[in-house]
């Protein structure tokens, strides 16, 4: 066996996919003549947002977290006679499930994605291109907002089928509250996903998600939680978002200043910390 043959077969064995192996191209002079430059920033933002959204939607665990679990909980809690839920059940449940959806995408989904993106070196890779830093961040934010919009449509549509009657004016006020919630939880997601090792991020992001679902005013309304947990939940971002969305959608009133303030504080603290702790790799 010649040396050439042996290196060829090693090359084939490298990957289990068919691959061109033998051709060694010669390059015409001028093929790599320098002509650098930056593309249109808006076009970059569009491309980046599309890529980030597609990657999230295509990821099976992300789909489970952001769509399937909230959908199952929405249907289950609205139709089964379980837990302390006010009547009509679907009107009480839907705002809290929307808050859960926001937390899943903004916090847990973002943290895990960022943790593994850092592990695989993509943040550094993209930082090394002509992509401006603001486009990289804005692309992620817009992608998260797009996913939340999709969740809202799917979950809201399902709730309507289940007999949900949201307040008409409340729907309009709920939109900025959903956006605020996504940004606040997103800041928390970046804080966790941007500083820790990927495995640690996975553990922390899922544990926090589960804890807030059970005891943070999502599965059970904050005011029905036992003892001090009830008042604690009001100061958690999950409880505050659920309360704000409940005010808009169930009661048709403006969200209380208290709930918005709680959200803003969490967002400001997480954002300020994340700016200091987030690392590229």
């Amino acid at each position: 066996m010649t040396r050439q043959e042996s290196s060829d077969s090693a090359y084939e064995g490298l990957a289990n996919t068919p691959e061109r192996t033998t051709r060694t191209p010669t390059f015409a002079p001028g093929t790599f003549r320098p002509s650098p430059g930056r593309a249109n920033p808006l076009r970059m933002l569009l491309t980046q947002t599309r890529a980030e959204s597609l990657l999230t939607l295509r990821h099976p665990e992300q789909a489970l977290l952001t769509l399937l679990i909230p959908l199952v909980l929405l249907i289950g809690m609205s139709t089964l006679d379980i837990g302390l839920v006010e009547q009509p059940r679907v009107d009480s449940v839907t705002p809290r499930i929307l808050a859960l959806a926001v937390m899943s995408t903004g916090f847990t989904g973002q943290a895990i994605a960022l943790g593994f993106d850092r592990r695989y070196g993509v943040i550094k890779r993209l930082s090394a291109t002509a992509l401006p830093r603001w486009v990289l961040i804005a692309g992620r934010v817009l992608a998260a907002l797009l996913v939340v919009a999709l969740q809202t449509v799917v979950l809201g549509g399902t709730a309507l089928v289940l007999g949900w009657h949201p307040s008409g004016a409340g729907v309009a006020t709920a939109v900025p509250v959903l956006i605020l919630g996504t940004l606040v939880f997103g800041a928390g997601g970046v804080l966790v996903g941007g500083a820790l090792r990927a495995e640690t991020v996975l553990a922390v992001a899922n544990t926090v998600w589960f804890a807030l679902l059970l005891a943070g005013g999502l599965a059970i309304p904050a005011r029905h939680l036992p003892g001090f947990m009830s008042s604690l939940a009001e100061y958690l971002p999950s409880g505050a978002l659920a309360e704000a969305l409940g005010a808009c959608l169930a009661d048709g009133t403006a969200p209380t200043a208290g709930s918005l303030l709680v959200l803003l504080c969490w967002g400001a603290v997480a954002g300020a910390l994340a700016v200091r702790t987030t690392r590229l790799s």
């Binding site: 930056r38 980046q48 890529a51 990657l55 695989y120 993509v122 890779r125 993209l126 291109t129």
Partner: peptide, 26 residues
């Protein structure tokens, strides 16, 4: 820049990744 050990989204497809980087260039 070719960083040591590469760098891409874990779930991105080969061609998608290259097109994403190409979209940054004039």
């Amino acid at each position: 820049v070719m960083p040591q050990g590469g760098g891409a989204y874990p779930g991105v497809r080969t061609e998608e990744m290259l097109r994403l980087v190409a979209a940054c260039c004039a």
